[in-house]
Design a protein around this nucleic acid. Structure first.
Length: 281
DNA sequence: GTTTAACCCTGCACGC
DNA sequence: TGCGTGCAGGGTTAAA
């Protein structure tokens, strides 16, 4: 599923490939879940009309949200959910299953939004309305865009006593980290998922702080993780390479890359967490 | 304040 | 082979 590194790769590719291009027509298709994807709009036209004729000017990201800026002061906001992806293909290419939205661009290209599980969301707002979008409003710092200050980071950890895994995945604290990268970051830091945040030593806080940057940057260099059944694909349909480097995620029973102990899996609710019982304390 | 569970959805693994 | 069932997961919200 796309987390910060995957969304950042899509952002960079979109920035390079679609900025300057014009949308000839926007189309919300009639798949079962198309209206669910554009659920903030009551009608198809509310989504389609402001996009038609506009030109992409910039592609920004905040956490797992993409903001595609357009001429005319419009912004197309996208969250890929679990299985959403943008696909840039020739207009003549076959429409793959679960393609809910198609932006027909000039130059014979389509920018398509495909999302089998339909947890993703697309909507269009004006630049002024963007400031009031509540989902964006409550996001915490983005570890790449607004590097975490040491003070904010360590104070928040000390003030709260929630389990570390929950805190790392709390988008109001830091945005962009999900299940895969929280497990990887905690392993690199040598911290267990269930440690209360206010029990970390200064040294552990420092390790965690560094690991967040390290892991996310490394994953971006490898073009993301394509680990699950609904594998992440980039704008051109290519898989990432970071799944080969995963240290703990989905490696239950495998040998820890550091100490050879078997990686364990724990659950809470219906989420899984993977960790090394030896290296993480 | 924190934790847990349910909801949305589809594809897949599994057992019969 | 084919069916039904359970599970996974991100974000949100309600309840504990």
């Amino acid at each position: 599923m796309p987390e910060l590194p995957e969304v950042e790769i899509v952002r960079r590719d979109l920035e390079r490939e679609v900025v300057g291009k014009k949308i000839r027509a926007a189309e919300v298709r009639s798949t079962r879940n198309a209206m669910r994807i554009v659920r903030r709009h009551a009608r198809r036209k509310e989504f389609e009309e402001p996009l038609s004729g506009a030109r992409f000017t910039e592609v920004a990201r905040r956490g797992k949200y993409l903001m595609l800026r357009l001429t005319g002061g419009r912004v197309l906001v996208a969250h890929l959910g679990m299985s959403g992806r943008f696909l840039l293909v020739k207009t003549t290419a076959d429409i793959e299953n679960h393609t809910h939205v198609v932006l027909h661009l000039t130059g014979g290209l389509d920018l398509r939004y495909v999302d089998p599980r339909a947890f993703g969301m697309l909507f269009v707002v004006t630049e002024e309305e963007l400031a009031d979008v509540k989902e964006l409003h409550r996001l915490g710092l983005d570890p790449l865009e607004q590097p975490l200050t040491w003070r904010y980071f360590s104070e928040t950890l000390a003030q709260r006593r929630t389990k570390m895994k929950s805190l790392l995945m709390d988008q109001r604290f830091i945005c962009g980290i999900g299940n895969i990268y929280s497990d990887e970051i905690l392993f690199v830091s040598g911290i267990r998922h269930d440690r209360p945040s206010d029990t970390l030593s200064d040294q552990e806080v420092r390790r965690l702080y560094r690991a967040i940057q390290e892991v996310l940057q490394e994953a971006i260099r490898e073009r993301g993780t394509s680990a699950d059944d609904e594998q992440y694909r980039d704008l051109f349909g290519m898989v990432g390479g970071y799944q080969k480097l995963l240290r703990v995620y989905q490696r239950e029973g495998g040998a820890c890359r550091r100490c050879r102990t078997a990686i364990e899996r724990a659950r809470w609710g219906n989420r899984s967490t993977f960790f090394c019982p030896q290296c993480q304390v």
